[in-house]
Design a protein around this nucleic acid. Structure first.
Length: 214
DNA sequence: CCAGACGTTGTT
DNA sequence: GTCTGG
DNA sequence: CCAGACGTTGTT
DNA sequence: GTCTGG
């Protein structure tokens, strides 16, 4: 699962890792929530290459009447994403890389819950496997939104939570973003747990998630 | 045929 | 939009 | 995901 | 407890 994450890298670092040229200045964010704008790398048909863009986190199916349905579509299960009505068309044609420097998972304890910050040992940004979708209401603004795919946790994450987001290594970026690839038999094998030995997890203070100071 | 569902969690 | 259930 | 709210009418 | 907003 992944319901909160971090993006603090500078635009230049993101541009180099993902080989995109048009990354705008990025405000460091330690607590990105569902329904907020996230940074994503997508296939840009006009440029016949990659582009960086903002997407609303929480995928709104194109057929949804109420865009608020997207608020709880912030994750999609790797095991079922190719078949679920809300995700299958995006899985075939609109995959993306959601840019992050870390994410949070909450471990349930006998008393309360303990958030952990998780990231790559080597530091730096990485890519969640994502999907995006276009939505157009009757008279409202169109919205492009996205979801982050989850899978089983690795050995590091298993004690903390039952799911973890799929992190794609750079060698998988090209296949994941290629819109001509549509076969689940090619795509689904990419949706695996990132190696535990390359990740770190540390408890953090719950106070950082409060909305109001005090 | 039309009407209604379509998702993720976690918790019971 | 597309599938399922009635 | 968590934090914060948690009402009343009437109308579709 | 459950829903909404971010």
């Amino acid at each position: 699962m992944c319901g909160r994450f971090i993006l603090t890298s500078a635009a230049e670092v993101v541009a180099e890792l993902f080989d995109v040229a048009d990354v705008p200045t990025l405000t460091p964010r330690q607590n990105i929530c569902p329904t907020e704008a996230v940074g994503a790398v997508v296939f840009d048909a006009e440029a016949s290459g990659r582009g960086f863009r903002g997407l609303r986190w929480g995928l709104i199916p194109s057929w949804a009447k109420d865009p608020n349905i997207g608020a709880r579509m912030f994750n999609a299960r790797a095991e079922t994403v190719a078949e679920k009505p809300s995700f299958r068309s995006a899985f075939k044609a609109r995959r993306c890389l959601v840019v992050a420097d870390g994410f949070y998972e909450w471990k349930k304890l006998d008393r309360g819950k303990q958030p952990h910050r998780i990231g790559l040992s080597e530091g730096g940004p990485f890519a969640f496997a994502g999907l995006w979708e276009h939505w157009q209401g009757g008279d409202g603004e169109p919205i492009d939104s996205c979801t982050i795919i989850t899978t089983e946790p690795n050995e590091l994450l298993a004690p903390i939570h039952e799911r973890m987001p799929v992190i794609l290594p750079p060698e998988d970026y090209a296949v994941w973003l290629d819109p001509e690839i549509r076969e689940a038999s090619v795509l689904q094998p990419l949706l695996r747990s990132y190696p535990a030995e390359a990740m770190t997890a540390q408890p953090v203070d719950s106070a950082r998630f409060r909305r109001k100071p005090g």
